[in-house]
Amino acid sequence: MLTSMVSVSNTASTYTAFQYCRRRHHQLLRASSAAPGVDLKTLESALAKKDSNAVKEALDQLSEVGWAKRWSSQPYVSRRTTSLRELTSLGIKNAENLAIPSVRNDAAFLFTVVGTTGFLGVLAGQLPGDWGFFVPYLIGSISLVVLAVGSISPGLLQAAISGFSAVFPDYQERIARHEAAHFLIGYLIGLPILNYSLDIGKEHVNLIDEKLEKLIYSGQLDAKELDRLAVVAMAGLAAEGLQYDKVVGQSADLFTLQRFINRSKPQVSKEQQQNLTRWAVLFSGSLIKNNKALHEALMTAMSNKATVELCNQTEKNR
Rank of each mutant, 00 (worst) to 15 (best):
S63H: 09
R104Y: 04
T256A: 13
Q158T: 15
A34P: 05
I92R: 00
D170F: 15
K246Y: 12
V38A: 13
K211M: 03
L59T: 00
I208M: 07
L84F: 13
A124C: 08
Q267T: 11
V232A: 03
M302N: 05
A108Y: 13
V167P: 03
W279P: 00
E96L: 12
K289E: 01
A34W: 01
L84R: 06
R23C: 09
L59E: 02
A166D: 07
S197W: 05
K202V: 08
V113A: 07
L287Y: 04
T81M: 13
G241C: 00
S151Q: 14
P75I: 11
A160D: 09
A34K: 01
G249P: 06
L294M: 05
L257M: 05
S33A: 15
E225F: 12
L257F: 01
E44F: 14
V268G: 03
P75G: 02
G150C: 03
F164G: 00
A58C: 06
K41C: 14
K56S: 10
S264E: 07
Y171L: 09
A233G: 04
A34V: 09
F164N: 02
P75A: 01
F109W: 12
E57G: 10
R174S: 08
M5K: 06
R263Y: 13
V65D: 05
L157I: 01
Q273C: 08
L59V: 06
G201Q: 04
P154T: 10
T116Q: 11
G219A: 08
N291E: 10
V113S: 07
A31K: 11
N206S: 12
L147H: 09
W67Q: 03
R30L: 06
V268S: 02
F183V: 02
E86F: 08
G115P: 06
Q172F: 14
A159M: 11
L156P: 07
V65C: 07
A306K: 13
T300G: 02
L287W: 11
F18R: 04
V114E: 09
A34S: 11
V38C: 13
L62F: 12
A239S: 04
A301W: 12
F111P: 06
L282Y: 07
L127D: 05
